Amino acid sequence: MKNNVDHIPGPIGVFDSGYGGLTVLNEFLKDYADYDFIYLGDNARTPYGTRSYDTVYHYTLENVRRLFDMGAHLVILACNTASAKALRTIQQTDLPAIDKERRVLGVVRPSTEIAGKITRNGHVGILGTTGTIQSGSYMIEIQKFFPGVLVSQQACPMWVPIVENGEIDTPGADFFVKRDLDLLFQQDPDIDTLILGCTHYPLLLPVIEKHIPSNVKIMSQGEIVSSSLKKYLERHPEMDEKCSKNGVCSFFTTGDNDVFDRASRAFLDQPVKSHKIEL
């Protein structure tokens, strides 16, 4: 991967299996208006949440490599399933062989690093895709930082399809959100902090808030990950120097770009004109 353009600053890459990562990108664009970003959605192969570890890993690595080829020195996996199933292997095994100077970060750790500070009674609930929940990544990371916190989790397999099909304001959405929240709180009625472990879920906030106790604090990842990125770049000025700063954001999808542009309106505070690519 190393070549004579490695010293040239490039955009920060943001990857997601589909649209959810746009909720993270939305916060990046607010907080880093001068920076360049490149978003890549693997819409042709979404969803990742029900796929095997090996499949998610190989798909994620393909997308990371493509973002590196597009000039990114830093890539954010704005996808919880990819972060849970692929990030560690990519960081430990692939990056040393691809380019030791490049970096890939995820969205799980930033949330878990502060969850124990937000909860008032030590009871935290996790909502996520089937793949994210089965990986146990949130439970492992929270226990690492806050061993005294009690963590419960619930897979919500219908939530992503509800969001991506524009069904947020329907009785079906209300039914499935209530069902999964009830299942979570049946595990632990004392949960006072709720982590939305999927970047699609913030779009369901009005529905979620209807079906949880008023004292429950909801952690949405966009702001958390954006704040974490700021701290990372402050700690690593050498990486900040490799981030180009022209205020430009480009969008790419492996799916139909017209469909991507229309669907992205629900996730992003600006119109999108994407380009289709093949991996």
Rank of each mutant, 00 (worst) to 15 (best):
K2W: 07
V5P: 03
H7Q: 13
I8Y: 09
P9C: 10
V14A: 07
L22M: 10
L22N: 03
V24P: 02
E27N: 00
A33R: 15
Y35K: 15
I38G: 02
I38T: 12
Y39R: 07
G41N: 00
G41K: 00
A44L: 13
R45F: 06
P47K: 05
Y48L: 03
R51A: 04
S52E: 07
Y53G: 01
D54A: 13
Y59V: 04
E62K: 14
N63K: 09
V64L: 01
V64E: 05
R65E: 14
L67I: 03
F68P: 01
F68S: 07
D69Y: 08
G71M: 10
G71Y: 08
I76W: 06
L77S: 00
T81M: 08
K85M: 12
K85W: 01
I90M: 08
I90G: 02
T93P: 00
T93E: 15
L95G: 03
P96M: 04
K100V: 13
K100M: 10
R102V: 05
R103D: 06
L105E: 05
T112D: 04
I114W: 03
I114L: 14
T119F: 04
N121E: 12
N121P: 10
N121K: 14
V124E: 00
V124S: 01
G125I: 08
G125Y: 07
L127R: 06
L127F: 06
T129Q: 11
G131L: 00
I133H: 04
Q134T: 14
S137I: 10
E141H: 12
Q143V: 03
L150D: 11
A155W: 05
C156L: 11
M158D: 13
W159N: 06
V163F: 05
E164V: 05
G166W: 07
E167L: 13
T170K: 06
D174P: 03
D180E: 14
F185T: 02
F185S: 01
Q186R: 14
Q187M: 09
D188F: 01
I191D: 01
P202M: 00
L205V: 08
I208D: 07
H211V: 01
H211L: 01
P213Y: 04
S214M: 06
M219V: 15
Q221T: 08
V225H: 00
L229H: 00
K231I: 03
L233A: 10
L233W: 10
E234A: 15
R235S: 14
M239E: 12
K242W: 01
K242N: 08
C243M: 14
C243K: 09
S244E: 08
N246C: 11
V248S: 09
F251H: 08
F251E: 09
T253A: 09
N257L: 12
N257F: 15
D258M: 12
D258F: 14
V259W: 12
V259F: 13
R262Y: 11
A263C: 11
A263T: 15
A263D: 12
A266H: 13
F267C: 11
F267V: 10
D269G: 12
S274Y: 09
H275V: 12
I277F: 11
I277H: 11
E278D: 15
E278C: 12
